[in-house]
Design a protein around this nucleic acid. Structure first.
Lengths: 148, 148
DNA sequence: GTTAATGCAAAGATTTTGCAGTGAG
DNA sequence: CTCACTGCAAAATCTTTGCATTAAC
C-alpha cells in the first residue's frame, strides 16, 4: 500500500519529465516511512544520511520544494522557525493541527466548521477566502500528565 | 487618546523598572502612529530612521521583544518570513487575520466560533487547547477588482 | 549526447549575541 | 554613580543560489 503510493508518485514525476534520481527516491521513501510525522528539511536530511551519506542538504530542500510544487507534499509553518512537510490530503481545507507547546508534537484534527465563516467574511469584509490555516496551541495528552 | 495610551505604556515600563529611553519612546510612538498596520522589525527600523538616524536594528528587535514580553504588543507570523507586530487586544482569542495573497495586506476579522471546538478537541484528542491561531488567505477587495 | 539534477560552498535573509561605551534613573 | 541599554559587528539559523560535475533519460 505504501509501495503503491510510492509508484504513483514516481509516475507523477516521470509524467512531468522530472528525473527519478536515487536522491528523490530515498527522500520519498523516508516520507512514506514517516507518514505520521511532520518532517523538516533538516529532519529529512538526518534520516536520509544513513542510507545515502553523500546527499546534500540543498538537494533535500530542492526535492521538498518540488514535491510541494507537484502537490504531493504540503508545506507547513508551525512557528518553530523551519518549514515542516506532510503528505498533502484531498481535504486539506478541513485538516487542522494541534501543536504541543511543551514537546512540539503535532497532531491532527479534522473539522469543516469554517466553511460557513468564509461566506460571512466575503459579505462583511469583501475578502475572498481561498484557503485558511488553523492551528491550536496547547498541551498534548502526554505532556498534560507529565506537567501535573 | 493615543497620547493617553502612550502614557499608560510608559508607566508600564517604569513600573517594571525598565528605562524609558528615547529609542523606546520613538518606537512606541511609531506603533501608535501606525496602529492599523502590522509592522515588521525592518518596517519599524525604516520608519524610525528618519526621526532617529542612529537607532540600531538590534535595538528595534530588543524593544519589540520587550513590548511583546510585557503583553503590549502581539507577535504574529503571517508566513512571509518575518515577524510582524500589532497592539495586543483583550480579545486576542477571537481576533483573526485576513491575509491578501496578492498585496500582502493584513486585515482583521473577529469571531468566537472556535470556543466550542476546543471542548470537542479536549474530548476527542485529549489535547488541552490554550490558544489558537486562525488565518484566512485570499484576496482583498482592492485586489479582487485589480485582478479581474 | 542532452539536459536536468547534484554537491559543495558561498550568499541571503532574518534574528540573536558579545562587548565596550553611554546615559537614564 | 550604577546598571540597564545601546550600537556595532559578528554569529547563528534556516534557506537559496551559482557553478562545475554527474548521471538519468
Amino acid at each position: 500500500m505504501a509501495d503503491e503510493q510510492y509508484e504513483i508518485i514516481c509516475d507523477r514525476l516521470r509524467d512531468n519529465s522530472y528525473k527519478l534520481t536515487p536522491q528523490r527516491q530515498t527522500i520519498l521513501r523516508t516520507f512514506l516511512d514517516n507518514a505520521d510525522r511532520h518532517l523538516s528539511a533538516e529532519d529529512v536530511y538526518s534520516l536520509v544520511k544513513h542510507e545515502y551519506p553523500d546527499m546534500g542538504l540543498a538537494t533535500v530542500y530542492r526535492t521538498l520544494d518540488l514535491l510541494a510544487e507537484l502537490g504531493i507534499l504540503q508545506k507547513n509553518d508551525f512557528g518553530d522557525g523551519r518549514s515542516r512537510y506532510e503528505f498533502a490530503r484531498k481535504d486539506l481545507h478541513h485538516h487542522h493541527h494541534l501543536i504541543c507547546l511543551n514537546c512540539g508534537e503535532v497532531s491532527e484534527f479534522d473539522d469543516d466548521l469554517l466553511e460557513s465563516l468564509e461566506a460571512v467574511i466575503l459579505k462583511r469584509n469583501h475578502f475572498k477566502v481561498v484557503d485558511h490555516n488553523l492551528k491550536f496551541l496547547g498541551y498534548c495528552r502526554k505532556c498534560q500528565s507529565t506537567l501535573e
